[in-house]
Computed example of a mutant assay.
Amino acid sequence: MLRFTANLSLLFTEVPLLERFQAAAEAGFEAVEIQFPYELSIDQIQQQLQRHRLKLVLFNVDADTLLQGGEGLAAVPDKRDRFRQAVEQTLAYAEVLRPEVINVLPGRCLDGERLDEYMATFKDNLRYAADAFAAIGIKTVFEAVNTVDMPGFVIHNGRQMLDILAELRHPNLALQYDLYHMWMMGEDCGDFLRRHSEKIGHIQFADCPGRGQPGTGDGDFEQVFSIIAAYCYQGWTGAEYRPIGKTAESLGWFSAYRDGAL
């Protein structure tokens, strides 16, 4: 099944975040996702979703300074309390906005000698989050991120994700599979999608290298989109790329699907 969302953290950045909902709707999207929505109030987001008849599919638990080079929250042993506070914040937003999935970013370990401790902390925190979001009927996902862009990221390939999923065996837990990050790690994304689509709760994409729109790198989107459409994946597929040029000019890939040409 192919259903596309616009990631408002990376797309339509020509305008402020509050105005990107309208831009996405005007471009033909029926759903959006946001990495971290917390700069906006719950009411502001809900008003935009209702006004433009959009569904909010996904957002992340806060990750502290991860995007600025820090370690994040979810795997850091000394930040367990702060992670749980972040989950409470996310619950407040999720109870009103009702996303389909909430993403927990594992984060980095910048001290290799403590990696085992960080991994254990992440698994405990992931289980805690999956329990918390299950209570309101929302699926929890977690993702692998490439270690070229984010050195030290504790989960950085599909095998690690599958191992954690198998170890935790939590009924409310699934994978977030990001094609860009896994291509950067040299994985065969088409093969992974064919073999494990039933374990995936959300998919994101950008071309590789460069993280631009489809057609700006080496990614085989005809292949992966056809696999997503053909296999038993039931979730949404998020456009999470940095447009080369204006966002509207980057949407040629989307127009073909939106208009039924593919």
Rank of each mutant, 00 (worst) to 15 (best):
E95G: 11
R84I: 06
L193P: 01
R98H: 13
F122K: 02
R84S: 08
V76Q: 01
D163N: 14
R84F: 11
V76M: 06
H170F: 05
D81Y: 04
R159Y: 13
V104R: 09
V96I: 13
V96W: 04
G107S: 05
I136G: 06
A135L: 06
P106I: 14
N103R: 07
M150I: 10
F192A: 07
V101K: 07
E95C: 11
V145H: 09
P99H: 08
Y177N: 08
V76E: 02
L91M: 03
M150E: 07
G137N: 10
G190M: 08
A130D: 09
I136C: 02
R80C: 01
F192Q: 01
A166N: 10
L97V: 09
M161D: 04
H196I: 01
L110E: 12
R194C: 02
V141G: 11
E167H: 05
A130Q: 07
D131F: 01
T90N: 05
L105C: 11
D149A: 12
M161A: 14
W183P: 00
E88R: 09
E100A: 12
M150D: 08
M161R: 08
A92P: 08
F122R: 10
T90C: 12
E167A: 12
K139N: 01
F83E: 01
L193I: 10
Y177F: 15
L165I: 07
P77S: 06
V141C: 15
L110N: 11
N172R: 09
D78S: 15
D191C: 12
V96D: 03
E71L: 06
P77N: 06
Q176G: 07
R108K: 15
D81I: 09
V141E: 08
G152H: 11
Q89W: 01
L168R: 03
K79T: 00
D78C: 07
G152Y: 09
A129S: 10
D188H: 08
F153P: 05
M182R: 00
N103F: 00
I136M: 02
I138C: 04
I138V: 10
A94P: 00
I138Y: 00
Y118A: 10
